[in-house]
């Protein structure tokens, strides 16, 4: 039995109710999109994350909360094998995407192209707004201007940015405001047509109003893809996540349906302590 499913799913109700707009709730009855087993990450021998095992299901928003240095970002980086950037980083255990171990993907670039990433601080590539969003489609070989135009408009609209930038697509992405840049990176991630979207504390440099707009976007996106949301805002996890894991000093202290964790149905008292702001 998989850890931390909501009561509705464990009761055997296959939460696969579909609506016209797509899948309305997570597919707990189907095989998970991500299966993590005994994942241990260390940097130059110093462990950052120990023995994590968890599953992430299609069309769910999976929240990860925890104080700084608890291994949240390390966890995210291993999902699309960004660990290659850090020679001192050692990853043990297995991560399966759609049932296949990600280390068995010979073409790591093909793996990454199916996973969108949004970093804590928006990283606008030194390109125009248009080229930022068209970057990934061009890598996939889309060349026709009309096709690219269509992708760019669709992704910027999805990221709630189109109306603000449609007249300045040719200006540098770095000239946008912080909140706009973060939505630009979300649009860029969506242009990959990913099945999995990883967000790492996306609201750090974003004002509250924009944060709310992005959260609305994420809620809508859930019908199309699966989202892993690392956040340092406990209430953001509560607002968005279907299930939430609590990482603390490299350990997964708790995992469960978000409502359970926030209503005190926890395995470990430290979870409640963190959620209520008594430490961290």
């Amino acid at each position: 039995m998989v850890d931390g499913l909501p009561a509705s799913a464990t009761a055997g109700v296959l939460a696969a109710a579909t609506t016209a707009g797509g899948v309305a709730s997570p597919l707990y009855g189907e095989p998970p999109i991500i299966e993590v087993r005994d994942l241990t990450i260390s940097y130059d021998g110093q462990p950052a994350l120990r023995d994590i095992s968890l599953d992430i299901f299609r069309h769910e928003i999976f929240g990860i909360i925890g104080p700084a240095n608890s291994g949240k970002t390390s966890f995210l980086r291993t999902l699309n094998r960004m660990d290659g950037f850090n020679p001192g980083m050692d990853v043990r255990g297995s991560i399966r995407l759609n049932g296949k171990d990600i280390n068995d993907w010979r073409n790591v670039y093909a793996l990454r192209s199916r996973i969108g990433v949004v970093f804590p601080l928006p990283v606008g590539l030194p390109l125009t707004v248009y080229d930022n969003v068209a970057f990934s489609p061009r890598l996939r070989g889309i060349r026709r201007k009309a096709d690219l135009d269509e992708v760019v408009e669709r992704c910027l609209t999805r990221a709630a940015l189109w109306d603000e930038v449609k007249d300045r697509l040719d200006s540098l992405g770095s000239l946008l405001s912080g909140g706009q840049q973060q939505r630009l990176t979300i649009a860029r991630a969506l242009s990959q047509e990913p099945e999995l979207l990883l967000l790492d504390e996306f609201s750090i440099a974003v004002d509250p109003v924009t944060t709310m707009r992005i959260e609305d976007v994420l809620r809508e996106l859930r019908s199309e893809l699966t989202i892993v949301l690392v956040t340092n805002l406990v209430q953001q996890a509560r607002r968005l996540a279907d299930r939430t894991a609590f990482f603390l000093m490299g350990e997964m202290v708790d995992i469960g349906a978000t409502e359970d964790l926030f209503e005190g149905r926890v395995r470990d008292e430290r979870t409640t302590g963190y959620i209520e702001g008594r430490f961290g």
Binding site: N80, M82, F85, Y109, A110, R112, S113, R114, I115, G116, V117, F119, L121, V123, L125, P126, L127, F135, S136, L139, T185, R188, A189, Q192
Partner: peptide, 20 residues
């Protein structure tokens, strides 16, 4: 961060060098 962002988009090392 440029390199990481471009690689996260699925660009190969060479594509990152050439295009970013």
């Amino acid at each position: 961060t440029y390199r990481e962002a471009a690689e996260a988009l699925g660009a190969t090392r060479w594509e990152v060098i050439l295009k970013v």
